[in-house]
Amino acid sequence: MRRRSVQEPLDRLTPREAEVLELMAAGASNTRIAEQLVVTEKAVAKHINSIFAKLDLSDDGSNARRVQAVTTILRH
């Protein structure tokens, strides 16, 4: 069996980060995600920042990273 040298972007996410990303893809706000997962909005923000980092989405000053993260999940 061959090992993949390049890890799929979504495989880098923890199960919780994947859950947050799925909720983002469903259109949930950070507040709604926090309510649904029974965590603080600060925790959701940390998960989202980790998702951005693991998906190699740099901060360009716009909200485009959230859209780019969601399109990553839709492509796979």
Rank of each mutant, 00 (worst) to 15 (best):
A25W: 02
L74Q: 15
A34C: 07
V67D: 14
A28Y: 09
I51D: 04
A43T: 12
H76A: 11
N49W: 09
A25C: 07
V38E: 15
D60N: 09
D11E: 10
Q7W: 05
Q7K: 11
A45M: 07
E41V: 04
N49G: 07
H76Y: 06
L21P: 02
A26H: 09
E35V: 03
V67Y: 13
D56W: 03
A69W: 01
S29W: 03
M1S: 08
R75E: 15
D60R: 10
D60Q: 05
S50Q: 08
S50I: 05
A45I: 04
S50A: 13
E8Q: 13
L74K: 15
D60L: 04
E8P: 06
L21R: 06
S5C: 13
S62T: 14
P15L: 10
T71D: 11
V70Q: 11
K46M: 14
E8R: 14
K42M: 11
S50L: 06
V6M: 12
D59C: 02
A28I: 01
R4Y: 04
L23V: 05
L21H: 03
P9D: 01
V20I: 06
S29E: 06
R4V: 10
F52V: 00
H47C: 05
L37W: 07
A26S: 14
G61Q: 13
R65V: 03
T71Y: 12
G27Q: 03
K46E: 13
Q7T: 08
T71W: 10
E35K: 12
S58M: 13
R65L: 06
E35L: 07
K54A: 01
E17V: 00
A34P: 04
S62G: 10
P9V: 01
A69F: 00
A53P: 04
T71H: 12
L55V: 02
M24A: 09
V44N: 03
E19K: 15
N49M: 08
A26V: 00
M24T: 02
M1A: 02
S29H: 02
R66A: 09
R12C: 01
A45E: 08
N63V: 04
A26R: 15
A69L: 01
D59M: 04
H76P: 01
L74C: 10
L55N: 04
R2G: 04
L23M: 12
L10C: 04
A53Q: 15
V70P: 06
P9W: 01
D59E: 12
D11R: 09
K42L: 11
E22Q: 13
G61H: 09
I73N: 07
R4N: 07
R12S: 00
A43K: 14
I51F: 03
N63P: 00
A18G: 10
N63S: 08
L55S: 04
N63Y: 05
Q7A: 08
I33S: 05
V39K: 12
N30F: 08
V6R: 14
L55G: 03
V67R: 15
V44S: 00
I48S: 10
E35S: 09
S62V: 06
L55A: 05
A34L: 03
E35P: 02
E17G: 00
Q36C: 06
I33F: 02
F52L: 01
L55D: 04
K46Y: 15
D59F: 08
A26L: 07
V39D: 10
T31V: 07
N63W: 06
M24C: 08
S58V: 10
S5I: 10
D56P: 01
N30Q: 13
E19W: 13
P15V: 08
E22V: 05
L23Y: 08
R2W: 11
V67F: 15
E17I: 00
I48R: 14
